[in-house]
């Protein structure tokens, strides 16, 4: 369970391995906010290696998206599996985020 951060051009890509849950959500928040403070404005969080996200994880994504927008940036999400899509649809967070089918699609035109 962990996060891998890389840069693709001026886009910060964070891959979530395992779960995004109450036990590790602060780690993701710190990593993204650190990059935001250092000037990054474009972020993709990729869930191709993610089993599930709980409400704390969803809350962190909402909070990060807001902070990034306040700085004039954008957060995109990619590669949600069927279960994760269900959670986003249930909570209507699919209306709040731009969600791409995969990482390449998220990076396209960013």
């Amino acid at each position: 369970m962990g996060f891998t951060v890389s840069n693709q051009g001026d886009v910060t890509v964070v891959e979530v391995e395992g779960q995004l849950i109450v036990g590790n959500r602060q780690e993701l928040k710190q990593k993204v906010l650190e990059d935001l403070e250092n000037g990054a404005r474009k972020f993709v969080i990729d869930f191709s290696e993610t089993g599930y996200i709980d409400s704390s994880g969803l809350g962190v994504l909402v909070s990060l998206s807001k902070k990034i927008r306040e700085k004039g940036g954008e957060l995109r999400l990619s590669s949600l599996n069927e279960d994760l899509r269900t959670l986003f649809e249930l909570t209507k967070l699919d209306t709040l985020f731009r969600i791409a089918d995969d990482k390449a699609a998220a990076l396209e035109g960013f």
Partner: peptide
């Protein structure tokens, strides 16, 4: 409420 970070646990 959709942009509030909390409050989704009971809903889920």
């Amino acid at each position: 409420n959709i942009e509030r970070p909390g409050g989704r646990g009971l809903f889920l």
